[in-house]
Design a binder for these strands. Structure first.
Length: 1029
RNA sequence: GCCCAGGUGGUGAAACCGGUAGACACGCAGGACUUAAAAUCCUGUGACCGAUGAGGUCGUGCGGGUUCAAGUCCCGCCCUGGGUACCA
């Protein structure tokens, strides 16, 4: 029988769609818009594997579905083309990354086109294209030329041009200014400002710009001459090469994303994203509300402490012998010096009466100033140690308590108690004020610290047992807390803050975990930062001179002096001034690309306001959940910023986000064993026997073992081998396991290794000597050993393991291969059929047959005897019912992204129609239209055969009619005590009482009851009848 | 540790509002067609008891609970995957 030739048909219809331009984004302003976007892929050298298209297929179905429903659909694709892999390759080969990138993009594009996606390729963008990065640079300059006014937009805060800030400085200085700025930005008056020279002004403005230069702590790798990301550092050394990595302060471009903390957090509420992702972002931004509290320093002369009184610290071998004296309530007022107080941040100002120590981060700027001479050496040592320890090391010993006392004391602002100051690395410099108040009665870490150093533990809430641990509940009543006694935390916190504010010793505040983002990269393959350095500081490149093109360099490596690669460029200057040599990070280009697709060829603007107003946000954004806190947060930040500056009319980039799961690979592993020693004398323990050749050397030996069912096996193999690969489940007597090795999954079918093909691959010029042992014999590389069986005969099983699909695990399945074997429609439907879109699941090539057979079945249904032919008659009620049941299901399931159940529904419908022998066009036509988003090629083929106009993809998506599926009867399950016994066909229209009467009159029910009488009969019309005995 | 998602046949899974657990598909077994194979079609397929029947018992990670009824809701626990990491 003839069949559907997908290869020819798919090519034909892909060409047909291009010719008809059906994927072109319509400009038609009448129609509602729908913007479906896939996350920007990075075009890697390895090409796509079957895991990548999962999201693309789902989004393509949505794009096609919405087109058929009359929407103007924007469905673009492009490439996030700057990045490290291309640069690494360039360093190795000397080939310009632009060249590799171009080739990789070509490959990706071909792969994507082959799968029949309906992208509008005329809108494609590439971040490394100067026509694109010109606008990335332009947005950077806008950030550079903006500051964040906390009073803008009804007090929510927003970005404003830097010139407005300059005007404010000219008139008021920093007075009446509520701006996002560096912590150490000094206050000054208007006269000061007007007296500043140009360099000083430039420096002042740097504290306020949204893109600014600052010293930032980075992972510097001297051997590589570059800065590494946290995940490129493993165990204190670089992941590549294992070179040492040190923490180093470097001048970097930063983006003041922290200005937007509140907006980024609050904006999440209106987004239709998964709770998991929203939670991740919330946690990342990390808002905590509490108070800043200032602790005044006790005068040094007043210290009751002498030289060594305050404990020995770090190792904790001895406690604080002065600890009991360290905490003493007293009148601290006259003891207070005029030094700046120490400020801490706390979320629990209500527990202030429980403070028994204060801890500074080792990096806290005042540590050395405060430390008394007697403690100087040990504090210095501790601070140095903390600096040397990498973040990873600190992480590894979370439970270890360490710290040193400074010898100084502060005064508790609420009760005047003397409190010792310690330095400990459990306090982070980057969060809050870099100092905390230790409340061991109510905080677990403080409790461990106090316990370790024998500092007093004061209970401030009811139910605290200072011996056992901290009590952090917010619901218990306060004790030992003066005016707060009897209140719970929620009431006590505002009271405590009120008191602090009255005393001028603190105020309520909100703190965020989010840090400003380092923007500079010491790399070549990225957008150049359009800033030059003049005599008085950084100077922005004039926007009309953009793009600032990436210059040619002789090598893609840092200079000998450790300067970034751009420092190698000849004449890297702008109007005589040296240009910035760092480049932008990968997320620069991807933070705004969704806007460019709306107006990709605009040379006047990044996108016209008219176009962005028309398309607005992305209606559906499809991509992996791994971008939860990186890309998705940065893109939101840039969108908020562009909104503030009036460039676009909306605040959030992605209205709805759907995260597709990962498709994992099934790796095939072979076990390797070390064979027992050969011996001419059989050892009973290992049961190894050998034969000797004529020289008396062992030539063959007998190995014994069992298969996975425990049945004994025996091999006579050459003695020369000491190692063997063994089939799964085999046990060789006396052999030791010696690891495993993965085999290309292409050589494995249902865990059985294609030994002949494998042998061919493994016996190249550098073939190793190997021995492969299966249940029924063995083979060797040379293939001439006595007793060896043929590679075709050998039964050898590999052990499957589900893990991430990757080249190194040799478990990659290539979509091109699947398309060649089964066609794009089958690949598309199978990936959807695999399970819920958002779940991770392993790829199993076996299962694809089911979908393939389904498509062939539908085609054959329309081609009896190989010729296209459908019947014209009016369908029966049953036939209509099958169709409309399908249409109702598809309509509902597409809306909830349940594509796997859509595929089942199509299978069920076709099975039903087939068993009814239905080949009526009145049924097939809507079925084909409903299937078109899923299997676009086959449906186009059938559509054209039906003699329909245009394209199936320009037809209307069919809608199910509930009237057509209405049934008079419902097959009620009859239960006994909740257990299903049998079904009864009863009228759907019957009321509960009528149903009960019908059920109780039924002979089968009588039989079920016997002589028992139901205590109760539960009747739920349209659902169930339950007899309760 | 904390946050999030998940745990259902040999396998991928379905069951959307608490109402017939296992749809659909793979695989497997048997059959039809065929000289044969492929393709296709048909039948069976959670486990156990029973005779292969009628029928019954158990069964959605584990232990409790609510309910006429729990894969679904509540409490406690175990495991897997993702995120995060001394955040005051």
């Amino acid at each position: 029988m003839s069949e559907y030739h997908f290869a020819e048909e798919e090519q034909r219809w892909q060409a047909f769609w291009v010719e008809k331009g059906i994927h072109h984004t319509p400009d038609d302003p009448e129609r509602p818009t729908y913007y479906v976007l896939d996350m920007f892929p990075y075009p890697s050298g390895a090409g796509l594997h079957v895991g990548h298209p999962l999201g693309y297929i789902a989004s393509d179905i949505m794009a096609r579905y919405h087109r058929m429903r009359g929407y103007a659909v924007l469905h673009p694709m492009g490439f996030d083309a700057f990045g490290l892999p291309a640069e690494q390759y360039a360093i190795q080969t000397g080939q310009h990354p632009a060249q590799t990138t171009k080739e990789n993009i070509k490959r990706y594009t071909e792969q994507l086109k082959k799968m029949g996606f309906s992208y509008d390729w005329s809108r494609t963008v590439t971040t490394s294209d100067p026509a694109y990065y010109r606008w990335t640079q332009w947005i950077f300059l806008e950030l550079f030329n903006s500051w964040f006014d906390r009073d803008a937009q009804d007090g929510v805060g927003g970005a404003r041009p830097i010139n407005e800030l300059i005007r404010h400085f000219e008139v008021h200085g920093t007075a009446q200014l509520r701006a996002a700025c560096a912590d150490d930005a000094p206050a000054f008056g208007a006269t000061d400002w007007n007296g500043f020279n140009e360099s000083e002004r430039s420096e002042m403005l740097m504290h306020y710009r949204l893109a600014y230069l600052a010293e930032a702590r980075v992972n510097w790798c001297p051997a590589l001459g570059t800065v590494l990301a946290n995940d490129e550092v493993k165990d204190g050394v670089s992941e590549r090469g294992g070179h040492t990595v040190e923490a180093r302060m470097m001048r970097q471009w930063m983006l003041r994303i922290t200005a937007y903390s509140a907006r980024l957090l609050d904006g999440l509420n209106d987004l239709d994203w998964s709770d998991a992702i929203k939670e991740q972002q919330r946690h990342w931004i990390g808002r905590s509300t509490g108070a800043r509290v200032r602790f005044s320093l006790e005068k040094t002369g007043n210290s009751h402490e002498q030289e060594h009184a305050q404990g020995q610290g770090t190792d904790g071998t001895d406690g604080a012998d002065g600890a009991d004296r360290a905490y003493a309530v007293g009148d601290g007022a006259d003891a207070v010096g005029d030094e700046h107080p120490i400020e801490v941040f706390t979320t629990r100002p209500d527990t202030l009466f429980g403070v028994s120590f204060l801890v500074l981060a080792p990096e806290h700027p005042r540590v050395m100033d405060l430390t008394l001479p007697a403690h100087q050496a040990r504090v210095e040592h501790y601070v140095l140690q903390a600096q040397l320890r990498s973040e990873r090391e600190r992480m590894a010993e979370v439970k270890t308590v360490s710290g040193v006392p400074t010898g100084r004391y502060v005064i508790n602002p609420l009760n005047g108690a003397r409190v010792p100051i310690w330095v400990a690395d459990y306090v982070l410099a980057g969060y809050g004020t870099g100092a905390v108040m230790g409340v061991p009665g109510s905080d677990e870490r403080d409790w461990r610290f106090a316990q370790h150093f024998k500092l007093p533990i004061i209970a401030v809430v009811e139910g605290t047992d200072p011996e056992k641990g901290a009590e952090s509940t917010r619901t218990a009543r306060m004790i030992n807390s003066d005016f707060l006694n009897g209140y719970t935390a929620d009431d006590a916190i505002p009271l405590a803050i009120e008191r602090l504010e009255q005393l001028g010793q603190g105020e309520g505040t909100t703190q965020y975990r989010l840090r400003d983002a380092i923007f500079s990269r010491q790399r070549y393959w990225g957008e150049p930062v359009p800033i030059a350095f003049g005599a008085h500081g950084p100077v922005a490149v004039d926007p009309s001179d953009l793009p600032l093109l990436l210059p040619a360099v002789d090598k893609y490596l840092p200079t000998e002096e450790g300067e970034p690669p751009l420092a190698r460029a000849q004449d890297w200057t702008y109007r005589g001034m040296p240009l910035e040599t760092t480049t932008m990070p990968g997320w620069a280009g991807s933070s705004w690309y969704f806007l460019r697709y709306m107006d990709p060829h605009n040379i006047e603007e990044f996108a016209s306001r008219a176009k962005t107003d028309r398309w607005k946000q992305v209606d559906l954004y499809m991509g992996g959940a791994e971008h939860a806190t990186g890309h998705l947060l940065y893109a939101r930040f840039w969108t908020q910023f562009l909104f503030d500056r009036g460039c676009i009319g909306f605040r959030e980039p992605f209205r709805r986000l759907v995260n597709q799961g990962m498709i994992q690979g099934v790796s095939a592993y072979m076990q390797r064993v070390r064979l027992p020693e050969c011996s001419t004398h059989p050892k009973p323990s290992t049961r190894v026997l050998t034969e000797t050749n004529k020289n008396g050397e062992p030539s063959t030996r007998v190995l014994t073992g069992t298969n996975k069912n425990g049945e004994p096996l025996r091999w006579e193999c050459p003695s020369a081998y000491t190692n063997a690969w063994i089939s799964a489940g085999l046990l060789i007597d006396g052999a030791e396991a010696a690891g495993k090795v993965s085999v290309d999954v292409g050589l494995v079918d249902q865990n059985r290794l294609n030994c002949a093909e494998w042998k061919q691959q493994e016996t190249g010029p550098d073939a190793k000597d190997w021995l492969l042992m299966g249940e029924n014999g063995f083979i060797t590389a040379a293939g001439h050993a006595p007793h060896e069986c043929s590679a075709d005969e050998l039964v050898f099983f590999t052990t499957p393991e589900v893990e991430k699909m990757s080249k190194s695990k040799r478990n990659v399945v290539n979509p091109d291969w699947v398309v060649d074997q089964y066609g794009a429609d089958t690949l598309r439907m199978y990936e959807m059929f695999l399970g819920p879109l958002e779940d991770s699941k392993p790829w199993d090539t076996q299962g694809i047959e089911g979908v393939y057979r389904f498509l062939q079945k539908l085609w054959r249904m329309c081609h009896p005897g190989g010729q296209f032919s459908l019947e014209q008659g009016e369908p029966t009620d049953q036939e209509w019912k099958s169709l409309h049941k399908l249409l109702l299901k598809i309509g509902a399931d597409i809306e909830r992204f349940s594509f796997n159940t859509c595929v089942s529904a199509f299978m069920i419908a076709v099975n039903e129609l087939q068993s009814m022998g239905c080949r009526k066009q009145a049924i097939i036509d809507p079925l084909v239209r409903a299937l078109a988003p899923f299997a676009p090629h086959l449906c186009e083929s059938l559509w054209q055969s039906m003699g329909m106009p245009d394209s199936v993809h320009l037809s209307a998506f069919p809608v199910g009619d509930p009237e057509r599926v209405r049934e008079d009867d419902y097959n009620y399950p009859i239960q006994e005590n909740g257990k299903m016994r049998f079904n009864l066909n009863l009228p759907r229209a019957a009321s509960a009482d009528e149903l009960q009467a019908l059920v109780m009159a039924n002979p089968r029910v009588h039989q079920l009851c016997g002589d028992r009488k139901p205590k109760r009969v539960v009747v739920v019309p349209g659902r169930i009848v339950n007899l309760v005995f």
